[in-house]
């Protein structure tokens, strides 16, 4: 089922590669995420003073969102994200800091990232988006609910555009696929088309 809305642009970050609208924009042989994302952040010329204080999920989401939002004038843009691991990578770090009474040292700077929606907060701050954020958990990338929910937000005029997709970070593995849905755009907004864009990159 297609709607009157379109996918304006999309991006993907996984396995050392960053692409936008199907074209490679950054590639690295670096296998470790923190080194990879740091080089990508610098090479792509992204500027956000808190970047190095953020957890891996937020770094992944912020870089992915920046690819699509850096030249975006529309500020009435809702964020609808999903993933499998929620914030478990940071949850494990917080748990380690409280597991043993001898080494008990919980940190507010870690604890605040133990929620998946924090990465949407970071993107909202950087791009001055006073819009709706929703974070769903699915065990795999699933276009169905994102498609219905995005159509609802646009039809109810809750936003002019919606930035949606998948940002997952777990056990060092990372995968981000974000796309912008708007009234006008190059790609069809349908469940099939979303799945196709996700699978062919």
């Amino acid at each position: 089922m297609a709607t009157r809305y379109h996918i304006e642009q999309y991006c993907r970050i996984t396995n050392g590669r960053i692409s936008k609208n199907g074209a490679l924009v950054f590639e690295s042989a670096e296998t470790e995420f923190s080194a990879f994302i740091k080089t990508a952040y610098k090479t792509l010329g992204i500027a956000y003073s808190k970047f190095f204080k953020m957890d891996s999920l937020s770094k992944l989401a912020l870089v992915a969102a920046d690819l699509l939002l850096v030249e975006e004038p529309e500020k009435n843009m809702a964020l609808v994200f999903s993933n499998n691991a929620s914030s478990l990578d940071t949850d494990r770090k917080h748990q380690q800091s409280i597991q043993d009474p001898d080494g008990y040292f919980p940190s507010p700077a870690v604890f605040v990232y133990t929620l998946p929606n924090i990465c949407m907060g970071e993107i909202s701050i950087k791009h001055r988006l006073f819009s709706e954020n929703s974070f769903f958990i699915n065990n795999r990338f699933l276009a169905d609910n994102l498609f219905d929910y995005t159509n609802s937000l646009l039809a109810m005029q809750k936003a002019e555009k919606v930035l949606c997709g998948w940002v997952d970070f777990d056990h060092g593995k990372y995968d981000a696929f974000l796309y912008v849905v708007a009234k006008n755009g190059t790609f069809t907004h349908s469940k099939e088309s979303i799945n196709q864009l996700y699978q062919t990159i």
Partner: peptide, 9 residues
Amino acid sequence: ASCNDANHI
């Protein structure tokens, strides 16, 4: 409705 502060996490 739901709106972000775009201010602080």
